[in-house]
Design a protein around this nucleic acid. Structure first.
Lengths: 267, 267
DNA sequence: CGACCGGTTGAAGTATATCAAGTACGGTGG
DNA sequence: CCACCGTACTTGATATACTTCAACCGGTCG
């Protein structure tokens, strides 16, 4: 019962969108192929899917028929453990490849759940080798994307490796900030698409601890936080918090509500 | 000083081995290609390297000239953090792909250090696209291997996600056991190639805590431990310890040296 | 309106980091 | 050969930061 309550309600999994400008070209662009090479003849058009928030793109344990590339929106990749705890293993958004990890195992290793209105391209697994054969560019792009996923996983590991909860959260935020910068959005002010509970799960701490760490950082003047909207005020100090794998930051945040603290206020 | 003392002495990085039976075929087998398809004409022979324990295969931050496939022995992939702490991100052995994560970034993201006498095949990066073009089988094998690496990374994440140190260690051991089984060695009794400190780093706990957890498990009769040699006595109970992400195992190990405890003894 | 969900905050117990000492092993040099 | 040192591992004592349980607030939805 707990397990089923933490899993998002599995509404209609996905509804296909009929037409679009040029799916294939867009897909290649998502995979990081420069437009010049994108024209290499791939056989079929990729399938485009739309998902509502909470909808699941793939189910843990299900057969892998498609792999997906995120076109818009964002997702969380989770595994439900025996005790019903929903372990978040990754967040994914534009350009990320989903489901490939399950390919070598035959079955999906994670459930992928949309965090907002999202669209993805689906590539039929049985067509993959054909596509590889037809397009060198595609083949290489796929590998590069896989490499990026690997880098991402390492980054996540490094995040969880810190012992202190504040350090973990600081790393998460800096990582998010860089992620936003990479796609041309503001690295200073962004919206977290996931709940505190999801962040906590990825970070491997209790969700209350995430809340507290946020509060601590706000009080220290590093951040301004309004629900899921985050503004980074002091990059310098935040970066300092990401350092120090062992026992907290170099310059630990004040534990008690020290007097002069820039509370979150209306602009 | 701390940093340099934790990094293994960078002895002669690697010495090439001149000849061997059929390197290309063996390389393909390592990547998981069935022998039947392995003959597809690849241009050049892969480079074979031998490394002594403590030797570093690649340096964090160095340019990526080669990617490597482990032929024998084992490695740890580490990143040295600003405070000099050596963060272990992965262990690698036979069949594992090393250095690919750095490809999309241009520079190695981790230093790779041999844990024992080891050999690897090196593939020149500038030849990769050529090899891809020449051999479909190679191309596909590379992708599958990348997929496996991804699965591995997820597994590691799941390991670190547990809050309790015992749970983490239990997952690590079960994972190791499965790993041994996959390659046809005994899943019950095996030799850990890495130090307690390395394990602790991967698990994200203090090395003293790893020691204590081992002792606890031995006292509970789950294991027999002799230095780096581990024998699993009670798979059932060990598996129970891997469950329970939150707060320890279902059936917590006795904290105090409870009277009837099967100590490690000579056979 | 009441229920529920997401988020925040408080209080208490506990697991783990940290500091520190002590053992065992292997290598090195006298 | 033995003293010496460094490394790996273990074990103990203490402090602290985290989990957990609990209450509370502000939204949204039926």
């Amino acid at each position: 019962m707990f397990a089923s309550s933490t899993i998002a309600p599995s509404c209609s999994p996905a509804t296909p969108l009929p037409r679009s400008p040029d799916p294939l070209q867009e897909l290649m662009r998502l995979l990081g192929v420069p437009d010049s090479q994108a024209s290499c003849g791939l056989p079929n058009q990729p399938l485009k899917l739309r998902l509502a928030p909470g909808a699941t793109l793939s189910h843990e344990g299900a057969e892998v028929d498609f792999i997906h590339v995120v076109r818009s929106g964002s997702f969380k990749c989770v595994r439900v453990l025996e005790d019903g705890y929903e372990q978040v293993l990754n967040f994914a958004d534009r350009g990320d490849l989903l489901g490939f990890d399950g390919l070598c195992r035959g079955a999906h290793l994670t459930s992928v759940i949309a965090l907002e209105d999202s669209t993805v391209y689906g590539l039929a697994v049985h067509e993959l080798s054909l596509m590889r054969a037809q397009s060198q560019a595609f083949c290489q792009a796929l590998q590069m994307t896989l490499g990026r996923q690997l880098v991402r996983a390492e980054r996540t590991l490094e995040m969880m490796a810190a012992v202190s909860a504040e350090t973990r959260l600081a790393r998460f935020l800096v990582w998010q900030s860089e992620h936003m910068a990479e796609r041309g959005e503001s690295p200073r002010r962004f919206l977290l698409r996931m709940s505190r509970r999801d962040i906590a799960s990825l970070l491997g701490v209790a969700h209350e601890t995430v809340s507290r760490s946020f509060t601590l950082m706000v009080r220290a003047g590093l951040l301004r936080v309004d629900n899921r909207e985050v503004e980074i005020l002091d990059f310098e100090h935040l970066a300092a918090c990401t350092r120090g794998t062992r026992g907290g930051c170099d310059d630990p945040l004040p534990r008690s509500p020290a007097g002069s603290a820039p509370l979150l206020d209306a602009a």
